[in-house]
């Protein structure tokens, strides 16, 4: 029966929290209104762990982030919940200059085990602050690991890896996937950071995607299956990034489309594109194509469905590189 068990992505994250908090008393969570549970991933956690381990803070992201970092320096293992990942920008100095770079600057003598979490993603019609996907920001700054699951299975496994990691990890998920259901084993397992996953095998073109866009890519692959054989590679983790798996895929398909819901300019897709040029140029039969959010602020209202990468835009790019 257990192999059939399905959880939502939020439930999978919650299950990872529960298991890791039972396993390690140093693990605690802090965030704004996480006791009530703004989102289901923290719902009722304080019933088991108490309000001293599921901590509501004032509306003070900067103080909250610094508190997590200080607590980590003192030997705890905080899970810092920004609610929306865009709210982490309040704590830009703490997240990007301090947490990520402190270890190196201070002689690599003291670990900083912190998991930062937040939901993000375009398509909710509420504008930039609730949509911004900060993995591009994160990979630009050395010292932070960053991942984003596309499935509940990966969510539980990646979260366990993140909590057990001795480095700051920014763990993101797409708001539109929170209620997405999928198989999640009951037993303990870890999905290591830095290992991509082939979500669908193919031979004509590789689509590299993550989060919600993995599902958009899979739709395209299914739609085109009689014309073009599409391989869908889920990056899962942006830093460390599994370049080797991507290059192996391109070796087979010789074509690459990168789908990235973040802004196009200077983002993850641009970075991967450059890495493929440097390390896999000879494998390619066509130029790399990016499908990203255009370089405009993420709008609210009815507009954002036109700015986010859609199956239509991905299909167009796939057809173009396969021409």
């Amino acid at each position: 029966m257990s192999s059939q068990r399905e959880l939502t992505l939020c439930e999978a994250i919650r299950e990872a929290y529960v298991e890791e908090m039972r396993r390690d008393e140093r693990v605690f969570m802090l965030g704004i209104s996480i006791q009530a549970g703004t989102f289901p991933h923290t719902k009722n956690l304080c019933e088991e762990f108490g309000t001293h381990r599921v901590v509501d803070t004032p509306l003070a992201e900067t103080g909250m982030a610094g508190c997590a970092m200080g607590a980590a320096q003192e030997g705890l293992r905080p899970i810092l919940d920004f609610m929306y990942a865009g709210f982490s920008y309040f704590a830009g100095s703490e997240v990007f200059l301090q947490m990520g770079q402190y270890h190196f600057l201070h002689g690599s003598q003291h670990p900083l085990p912190i998991v930062m979490v937040g939901t993000c993603g375009v398509g909710r019609r509420v504008g930039n602050e609730h949509a911004t996907l900060p993995y591009g920001m994160a990979i630009h700054h050395p010292g932070i690991k960053t991942c984003m699951p596309a499935t509940p299975y990966d969510a539980k496994g990646l979260m366990k890896a993140a909590i057990r990691d001795d480095n700051p990890v920014l763990f993101l998920w797409h708001t539109n996937l929170m209620m997405h259901k999928g198989y999640v084993p009951e037993e303990d397992y870890v999905v290591p950071l830095g290992v991509a996953d082939i979500k669908r095998e193919g031979s004509d073109v590789t689509i590299l995607a993550s989060g919600l866009q993995v599902h958009s890519a899979l739709k395209v692959a299914e739609k085109l299956k009689d014309e073009i054989s599409v391989e869908v590679v889920d990056a899962r983790s942006f830093e460390p990034f599994d370049r080797e798996s991507l290059l192996r895929s391109i070796e087979k398909t010789t074509r690459l489309v990168i789908v990235d819901e973040d802004f196009e300019r200077g983002g993850f897709a641009a970075e991967v594109s450059a890495q493929v040029m440097e390390h896999g140029y000879d494998l390619l039969d066509a130029p790399v194509r990016r499908v990203c959010h255009p370089n405009i602020p993420v709008p609210g209202g009815y507009i954002d469905v036109y700015t986010m990468p859609t199956s239509e835009r991905i299909e167009e790019a796939v057809r173009e590189v396969c021409r």
Partner: peptide, 12 residues
């Protein structure tokens, strides 16, 4: 920068 960190030290 130290102020929020000190909150963390005290919290811990």
């Amino acid at each position: 920068a130290n102020f929020p960190l000190s909150v963390g030290y005290g919290f811990a």
